[in-house]
């Protein structure tokens, strides 16, 4: 092979893509929109000898609502989620979480499957999808399994996707009565979040997921349980926010120190809950 050449595998059907994935496994880096893999390659952090592109697989680009459940193909772009009428009507918080990612240029490339499979701690959609109870469908030649986001993302850039599996679809149950996504940026309007909060409330159940502060989205069910069936008021919002701030062990990066993130998380969780109650 020519020096420095990269093998470009571009199946046009899902069946073929799954076969190639099963055959080549981790030897071929899976790429969809390329916004994540592109940076890794350009930075010299990744030098794949082969790339498995899903860009030509039309079957992965479907959006449908079936039995009240939203099904997003893994190849659906952020921009499509943001603008899709059925998503906007039925899952407005999800449309918002995808709409605040980076810039239109990035959102026209980045995909639903990619943002989950990359498990980048500083992405917006994972926390939002987790709060909404979304599951990722992982398919291999042997069959498929649907894994909740909190089980899919294991930690820093790490998922439970096996080398013979492809993330093919994301399923989002009917939207809770109230859901809020707040993104706090410490730098540009196109930056990733410094702290993100996704909160959802349905029939007494409260889910609060804090994104971008650790290796994976942070959710403390026992703290959320304080709410019980109560209406959220200022005091309850503050109490839950304090609970989250105490439990978080934030990371430090160019967007903020650990201490700063903890403090902002307390503010943003409280604000998200107040918004949820409003």
């Amino acid at each position: 092979m020519t020096l420095g050449a990269v093998e470009w595998l571009a199946p046009s059907t899902l069946r073929e893509a799954i076969a190639v994935r099963a055959e080549r496994g981790e030897e071929a880096t899976v790429v969809a929109g390329g916004t994540f893999v592109g940076i890794l390659i350009n930075q010299g952090l990744l030098s794949p000898s082969a790339l498995l592109s899903l860009g030509d697989v039309a079957e992965l680009r479907g959006i449908e609502v079936a039995g009240g459940e939203l099904r997003l193909g893994a190849g659906v772009t952020h921009r499509t989620v943001e603008r899709d009428p059925s998503v906007r009507a039925g899952w407005p918080m999800l449309a918002r979480a995808f709409a605040v990612v980076a810039s239109p240029r990035v959102r026209n490339q980045a995909t639903v499957g990619g943002v989950l499979a990359d498990a980048d701690y500083a992405s917006d959609p994972p926390a939002a999808l987790q709060a909404l109870g979304a599951r990722a469908v992982l398919r291999s030649p042997d069959g498929e399994r649907a894994v909740p986001v909190e089980e899919l993302i294991l930690g820093w850039y790490e998922t439970c996707i096996r080398p013979d599996e492809l993330l093919v679809e994301v399923r989002v149950p009917p939207s809770p009565a109230r859901a809020v996504y707040r993104k706090f940026r410490s730098r540009s309007s196109e930056d990733r979040p410094c702290v993100a909060v996704a909160a959802a409330r349905d029939e007494g159940r409260l889910r609060v997921v804090v994104g971008a502060v650790a290796g994976r989205p942070q959710e403390f069910a026992d703290v959320c349980a304080i709410a019980g069936g109560r209406e959220i008021d200022a005091a309850l919002a503050a109490e839950i926010a304090r609970g989250y701030a105490d439990r978080l062990e934030p990371i430090a990066d160019a967007r903020g120190s650990a201490d700063y993130r903890r403090r902002v998380a307390a503010v943003e969780v409280r604000r998200a809950l107040e918004e949820l109650a409003a």
Binding site: Q43, S103, E190, D191, A254
Partner: peptide, 16 residues
């Protein structure tokens, strides 16, 4: 350099 890409190094965008 810890932020030698335009995801980690921000320049002002229209929204700023």
């Amino acid at each position: 350099v810890g932020n030698s890409n335009l995801s980690d190094y921000n320049v002002p965008a229209l929204g700023d």
